[in-house]
């Protein structure tokens, strides 16, 4: 996994960082991901039964919050943001990108698997950032920031690894979880692609339908006029029956 992944990261980073406008979008995506993990870590502070871990989760969350700001700052500094800028501020994007939403990560996974997730994600991020640093990407200012961030990520890796090792000694299947989490990430990538592809295709077919079917109805429909209108009549009878209607 390691060698292959590094090769892939190298190729991908060479391509993606050098396309015009791409660095901004990547950094915006990082900012969003960091903000998402801040929320995940804060939720863990709230939910954990292991009180000795709370402070670690909390400090971890603060780091992620700071990283999000650093990345957002870099996006702004690089200029020409357009959509990238808006994405940083818009929390709806966190849901759209599948970063948060519904139950929290901690609730879904439970503490041992949550920590395994943290370990896997942080270790991967460290590896990814190392590749960027090795290749001198994307620019020297961002490199400086990445170096600072890397130092903090190393703390995240080390405390979560210690916990994962402890769970392994207790006989929990942490390595299987780690593999499963990596596989799940691939699967979720496919689902996202599949969903986006489906969205494009269904929009296309609905567009075709629009052109084929709507034209004649146009003659019958008109927009409402302005000014006060008499409200439409409400169905009478049992109010409970009416309250169930039209839903």
């Amino acid at each position: 996994m390691g060698v292959l992944r590094r090769m892939w990261l190298t190729v991908a980073s060479e391509v993606s960082w050098r396309l015009p406008g791409r660095p901004q979008r990547l950094l915006a995506a990082f900012a969003l991901a960091e903000r998402g993990s801040m929320l995940d870590m804060l939720a863990a502070v709230e939910a954990t039964d292991r009180r000795e871990l709370r402070k670690k989760y909390f400090l971890h969350a603060l780091d992620e919050g700071r990283h999000a700001l650093v990345f957002a700052e870099r996006v702004r500094a690089l200029g020409q943001l357009g959509r990238a800028e808006a994405a940083i501020e818009d929390s709806g994007k966190l849901v759209e990108a599948g970063i948060v939403g519904g139950r929290t990560l901690f609730e879904r996974l439970g503490e041992p698997e949550f920590l395994t997730f943290v370990y896997v994600a942080e270790a991967d991020a460290v590896e990814q950032f190392r590749v960027y640093l090795d290749r001198g990407l994307p620019d020297t200012r961002t490199q400086d920031e990445l170096r600072g961030i890397l130092k903090e990520e190393t703390f995240h890796v080390s405390y979560s690894r210690a916990e994962v090792d402890r769970y392994r000694k207790e006989g929990l299947p942490v390595d299987w979880w780690a593999t499963r989490l990596r596989l799940r990430r691939l699967w979720e990538g496919w689902l996202r692609f599949s969903r986006d592809f489906g969205a494009v295709m269904s929009a296309f077919w609905l567009g075709v339908l629009y052109l084929l079917v709507m034209a004649p109805f146009r003659l019958l429909a008109r927009l409402e006029p302005g000014g006060w209108q008499t409200p439409a009549g409400r169905p009478g009878g049992d109010p409970l029956v009416a309250a169930r209607m039209e839903g």
């Binding site: 496919w190 689902l191 692609f193 599949s194 969903r195 592809f197 489906g198 295709m201 269904s202």
Partner: peptide
């Protein structure tokens, strides 16, 4: 229906 089997949507389309 397509959403319920969205993981194969690209193939269906």
């Amino acid at each position: 229906f397509l959403q319920s089997i969205h993981y194969v949507a690209p193939f269906i389309y």
